[in-house]
Simulated assay, not measured.
Amino acid sequence: MAQAGKGRLNYRCPMCFMRDLDIDMFYDKDKDEYYCIRCQYVGNEEDVLKRNEVVRMKYGSMMKRYKMEDF
Rank of each mutant, 00 (worst) to 15 (best):
V42K: 10
Y41W: 04
C36E: 02
N10R: 07
R65D: 03
D30P: 00
D28H: 10
V48W: 03
R56E: 14
Y59Q: 04
D47R: 11
R51K: 14
K29P: 08
M57T: 14
R51Q: 13
M63Y: 09
Q3F: 15
I23D: 04
K58T: 03
P14F: 06
I37D: 14
M68Q: 07
K67E: 12
D70Y: 08
D32Y: 07
D20V: 05
K50Y: 13
V54Q: 14
D30V: 07
K31E: 10
D47M: 06
Y66Q: 06
Y11A: 12
V55L: 01
N10F: 04
R56K: 13
D24G: 10
Y59C: 03
C16P: 02
M57Y: 07
G43L: 02
P14W: 03
Q40I: 03
Y59I: 03
G5A: 00
I23A: 04
G7R: 08
F17C: 06
R8Y: 13
D32F: 04
Q40K: 13
Y34N: 09
R51H: 09
Y66P: 00
C13T: 08
D30Q: 14
I23L: 05
M15P: 02
M1P: 11
L49I: 15
A2V: 06
G43A: 05
M18G: 07
M1A: 09
D32V: 14
R51P: 02
D24F: 01
G7D: 09
L9N: 12
C13E: 07
Y59V: 05
F71C: 07
Y11F: 15
R19T: 11
F71K: 11
N10G: 07
G5R: 09
Q40Y: 07
Y27V: 03
K31S: 10
D30I: 04
K67S: 11
G43W: 05
V48M: 04
V55F: 00
D30L: 11
D22A: 08
C16S: 05
N44W: 08
D47V: 14
C16E: 06
V54Y: 07
K50E: 15
V55G: 01
L9I: 06
G43M: 04
V55E: 04
Q3H: 15
Y27C: 03
M25D: 00
E33H: 13
K64N: 01
G60C: 01
D24S: 11
M63P: 00
V48L: 05
K58P: 00
D47A: 06
K29H: 12
L49W: 01
M1E: 08
Y66K: 12
D32Q: 12
G60F: 06
G7N: 06
V42P: 00
